[in-house]
């Protein structure tokens, strides 16, 4: 049984069907790249896994049970621009907000909470910057703060929405290494990305999405241009397909 199972999920937004009959299962230890053009429904799929959009049909199971926001071990890393980086808050306090759902109204962060926060900050290699205000961090450091915030829940499933946008190549490589390690430690990692080359190189699995799952296989089995043409709606002469030939 996979830790995360999406079964026949259909989602409508504003009267249009955005996702149709999605089936996707992610196992512990896997780093799955969710790839598709703009507007394909990648963010919507992540949000429906989290229960943030209502699904018209189908269901999402975590550990074989329907997802529940406060109970299910799912960590989320939204796009970086959703975060108020000018807020006067230190890295460790920002990471602690990842546990707000567990804390509830009446409990203040306790020893166990601070330990979880400390561990996840160490895990992303930000230990020395734990007390730095978030506004004084670089783009790559900010992305690591968001990952640490998701890890503070000690999740078994990690969802990342375009973690590489606006980052240079060395930083992308560093983060990819981190995500791969997090998967190997026994988590299921699902990440959307527009970096096809990077995804083909490092992901253990790739799901091509355009309103529905077009293909879902390890990168080595995805060298045929046909599913890529279908997912991205491009012709055989597209530069996109040249990448595949080189791989």
């Amino acid at each position: 049984m996979s830790v995360l199972e999406v079964r026949g999920v259909t989602v409508g937004l504003g009267g249009r069907t955005v996702l149709r009959d999605i089936d996707l299962a992610v196992d512990l230890g896997e780093l799955t790249g969710l790839i598709g053009p703009n507007g394909a429904g990648k963010t919507t799929l992540l949000r429906s896994i989290l229960g943030l959009v209502r699904v018209a049909a189908g269901q999402v199971l975590v550990d074989g049970r329907p997802i529940r926001p406060r109970r299910s071990p799912v960590g989320y890393v939204p796009q970086r621009h959703e975060f108020a980086w000018d807020f006067p808050i230190s890295v460790e306090n920002a990471v602690m907000t990842g546990r707000s759902g567990l804390l509830g109204l009446f409990r203040r962060p306790g020893v166990a909470d601070w330990r979880a926060v400390g561990e996840s900050i160490e895990r992303v290699g930000m230990g020395e910057l734990a007390r730095r205000p978030v506004g004084e961090l670089s783009g790559g450091q900010r992305q690591r703060v968001l990952v640490a915030r998701a890890l503070a829940l000690q999740p078994r499933v990690l969802l990342l929405d375009e973690p590489f946008t606006g980052l240079d190549l060395p930083t992308q490589e560093l983060l990819t290494g981190l995500f791969l390690e997090l998967a190997r430690e026994g988590r299921a990692v699902l990440m959307t990305t527009h970096d096809l080359v990077g995804a083909l190189d490092t992901c253990t699995r790739i799901a091509l999405l355009n309103r529905t799952i077009v293909a879902d296989a390890p990168p080595s089995e995805l060298l045929d241009p046909e599913p890529w043409m279908r997912a991205f709606g491009v012709s055989e002469t597209s530069p996109l397909l040249k990448i595949l030939k080189v791989m």
Partner: peptide, 22 residues
């Protein structure tokens, strides 16, 4: 005092606040 942690979470990132069940 009671709501501070939740207010901070929502002010920082509404999307994450929803995801963690606030």
């Amino acid at each position: 005092l009671l709501l501070h942690q939740q207010f901070v979470t929502v002010s920082l990132d509404r999307e994450l606040a929803r995801a963690v069940g606030l």
